[in-house]
Design a binder for these strands. Structure first.
Length: 473
RNA sequence: GGUCCCAUCGUCUAGCCAGGUCUAGGACGUAGCCCUCUCAAGGCUAAAACACGGGUUCGAAUCCCGUUGGGACCGCCA
């Protein structure tokens, strides 16, 4: 295929291995690649690294794709799958073998493992001792193909984030590029694919920095141009260990299920390790135009779930009510607050959501808060009832029922007038009547403004609930 | 153990490359106050950091060295 010469169009890729769901760390790597591609009007390629057949599954491939789509990280080419490209890797591996740049290794995995253990025990580096490198001729035994690393000199990775990083060649081992079963290994596939796909910039996690000199030598041996590298820091859990399952939710899709907005996740991930002055909230367009590798920090970042929650609440506040309604709908249905075939008037739904959106940090919370608008009757919290429903408040409610019944237009303004009348007549505080009513209508002591709530709940349900609470009392 | 990376409030970070304007800025979270029918939202205020030790310099968060701490990698895993 093409060479990368000429510095033409930017081509980057995200290359997850489908051995799990797309997690927060992977998503950020994908995002940085996507942003970089968009910023430079380049191409973003999705490649599935599934050469580990025992751990890769179709389910994870689908899940990763679903997560990418949900986040809005669309790709221009792919998804390519390494398992579809085995012949290509094999051909390159044998080419290296023929050219004497690689050699047959007859050591068995068991032998290697044993030697590794011994080396560790004796405090030696657990590295392959190159014992098969000098074997001449071909033995009639199963073999893996190993790459001949240079024995001397050093290799510099000119990293776009870390700066120049120097490795001694003597520290780099002769890695296996083709296993004895004929399948290629990661470090080899990456090089072949990145070349074949004309990748110009490899943006990936810092955990790959130590692999980079190995890959550079493979590029050289194959006569390929080396792309530019950018190794971005890791995302850690609160205990500073690499983010993993035990830190709670790490799968991107679990955030979808918890009611997070993809834009909030994207914004949050972008600010983890990258910044633009004091700016915290970015639209996608801003992210695309402002993103650059120079502003990517060098230090690892700890995943701060609280800040994500805050950002999500900001995005909920920014989202128009109608749109929010279609977003909460699945949650409402799931919680049985709404039937799938229910016919809800959009203007009413918008009003309901407007009253709640700045009180909720996730769609799930929003759905839950909407229950007293949607359900026919509400469950009353016994503690709230005990505190606010008593003979005195029941009397006030009685009076309220009478006045509200006469109301032609059941609107916030009219309702407020009635409350104020009662407060003035009875010489009570607004809270003396507002709280009992709130308990009757919402079942709880917390809600948006009470007049607003009554209007949204509507005259019929309001009166029914008010009666019910004093009757039950 | 070896190699590599990193180090500013509890957390994300600005500042560092081009040393003085930093009594170190913003944001999340926390605390207090205001607003108030509850809860939020909003407004105001507060506590909170240059890991440590040496240099270089008139002057260092910023440059250099070391120490310590954290992370990553050392597979016929990716």
């Amino acid at each position: 295929m093409t060479s990368n010469k000429g510095g033409s169009v930017v081509r980057v890729r995200f290359a997850p291995s489908p051995t799990g769901h797309l997690h927060i760390g992977g998503a950020r790597t994908a995002l940085f690649n996507w942003l970089f591609a968009k910023h430079h009007r380049g191409k973003f390629i999705l490649r599935i690294e599934d050469t580990d057949r025992s751990r890769s599954t179709e389910e994870f491939i689908e899940s990763i794709i679903e997560a990418m789509k949900w986040l809005g990280l669309d790709w221009d080419e792919g998804p390519f799958r390494q398992t579809d490209r085995m012949d290509i890797y094999r051909a390159y591996a044998h080419k290296l073998l023929e050219e004497g740049k690689a050699y047959r290794c007859y050591c068995t995995p068991e032998e290697l493992e044993q030697r590794r253990q011994e080396a560790m025990k004796e405090g030696r580096p657990p590295r392959y001792d190159r014992r098969c490198r000098e074997i001449s001729g071909i033995l009639n035994k199963p073999f893996a193909i190993r790459f001949k690393m240079p024995l001397h000199g050093e290799t510099v990775v000119d990293d776009l984030v870390k700066g120049p990083v120097t490795f001694k060649n003597s520290e780099i081992e002769d890695l296996v590029i083709l296993r004895s079963d004929g399948t290629p290994t990661y470090n080899f596939c990456v090089v072949v694919d990145d070349f074949e796909m004309a990748i110009t910039h490899v943006i990936r996690g810092e955990d790959h920095l130590n692999n980079t000199p190995k890959q550079i030598h493979i590029y050289h041996a194959l006569g390929m141009d080396v792309p530019k590298f950018a190794h971005i820091p890791m995302i850690l859990g609160t205990d500073k260990a690499r983010l993993s399952k035990r830190h709670g939710a790490t799968a991107v899709l679990s955030y979808r299920d918890e009611g997070y907005l993809p834009d909030a996740i994207v914004n949050f991930l972008a600010r983890l390790g990258w910044s633009y002055g004091d700016k915290e909230i970015f639209t996608r367009e801003e992210l695309i135009s402002l993103f650059n590798l120079e502003q990517v920090g060098k230090a690892n970042a700890i995943f701060n779930a609280e800040k994500l929650l805050w950002l999500n609440s900001e995005y909920i506040k920014m989202t128009p009510e109608e749109e929010l309604f279609s977003l909460v709908k699945p949650f409402l249905i799931k919680e049985n607050y709404l039937r799938e075939d229910a016919n809800i008037e959009l203007s009413w739904a918008a009003k309901a959501i407007r009253s709640l959106k700045e009180r909720c940090r996730t769609l799930k919370e929003l759905a839950h808060a909407m229950r007293y608008y949607l359900l026919d009757s509400v469950e009353i919290d016994p503690k709230a009832k005990e505190k606010y429903i008593n003979p005195k408040s029941a009397g006030l409610i009685e009076e309220l029922i009478e006045k509200l019944s006469c109301l032609e237009e059941f609107t916030q303004d009219r309702i407020e007038k009635i409350f104020i009348d009662i407060v003035n007549e009875k010489k009570i505080k607004l809270g003396d009547i507002a709280q009992p009513v709130r308990v009757a209508i919402t079942g709880n002591t917390v809600s948006p403004g009470i007049y607003e709530v009554l209007e949204i709940v509507g005259k019929e349900k309001t009166l029914k609930r008010l009666r019910r609470i004093i009757d039950a009392h």
